[in-house]
């Protein structure tokens, strides 16, 4: 009888430990997948912004005299972004594209006809909205990474994180390229 009861207690203990382990495992998987999703959600907006580039070029082209080199650079960046497969590469191209778009909108101030175009204004607003959303999602990504990093470093989660080979992830930081302000080039 004593052995049976001891067995029951051991079973209860094992059930509690296994239940706890499953809960920790599920939370870690959730945090990991959520971090991937947060990055993928930035990617979606970058793609949306890239998709607006042909329309922008089309509208700008209609106004003769606009700097051709800026538009060519923008086209090349879009193609590079769509062909890029690595995350780091995509982020680098996206940052460059953001700079190029700023240049286009800055230069457009020299073309009153372009400024008064409804289509151009709509595009400008749309791209600006996407830029804001990208900034929000970068912030959200960093929050997600913070939760993930904390999650995998807590005890006893750290044991499971080690077994699952979940390592610390890096925050999205402002690149050196972004920190440098070269002014608007005409």
């Amino acid at each position: 009888m004593e052995n049976l009861l001891a067995l029951l207690i051991v079973v209860a203990l094992v059930v509690a430990l296994v239940g706890g382990a499953i809960a920790i495992y599920n939370r870690l998987v959730f945090l990991n997948n959520n971090t991937d999703k947060a990055f993928a959600n930035i990617d979606v907006l970058l793609k949306q912004r890239a998709d607006e580039i042909p329309n922008l070029i089309e509208v700008v082209k209609q106004h003769t005299g606009f700097e051709q080199s800026v538009l060519e650079k923008l086209t090349k960046l879009r193609t590079d972004f769509l062909n890029a497969t690595q995350s780091d590469e995509k982020v680098a191209i996206a940052n460059e594209t953001a700079g190029a778009l700023k240049t286009v909108f800055a230069v457009s101030e020299n073309y009153p006809e372009l400024q008064s175009s409804q289509a151009f204004n709509n595009l400008q607003n749309r791209v600006s909205g996407i830029e804001d959303a990208i900034a929000d999602r970068r912030e959200l990504f960093n929050e997600t990474v913070a939760l993930y990093n904390t999650g995998i470093q807590e005890f006893p989660n750290v044991i499971f994180a080690g077994m699952l080979r979940y390592n610390k992830r890096n925050f999205l930081q402002i690149t050196e390229q972004e920190k440098v302000y070269n002014g608007v080039k005409f």
């Binding site: 939370r27 929050e143 939760l147």
Partner: peptide, 29 residues
């Protein structure tokens, strides 16, 4: 220990693992 896992709403458990999104840029899902 076992009861603790069952107590509390899904919201209270999930909010510990989910960051708060800005409404204008909330992602699908």
């Amino acid at each position: 220990i076992i009861g603790k896992k069952r107590s509390g709403s899904s919201l209270m458990k999930l909010q510990k693992s989910l960051p708060t999104s800005k409404i204008r840029s909330v992602a699908m899902g």
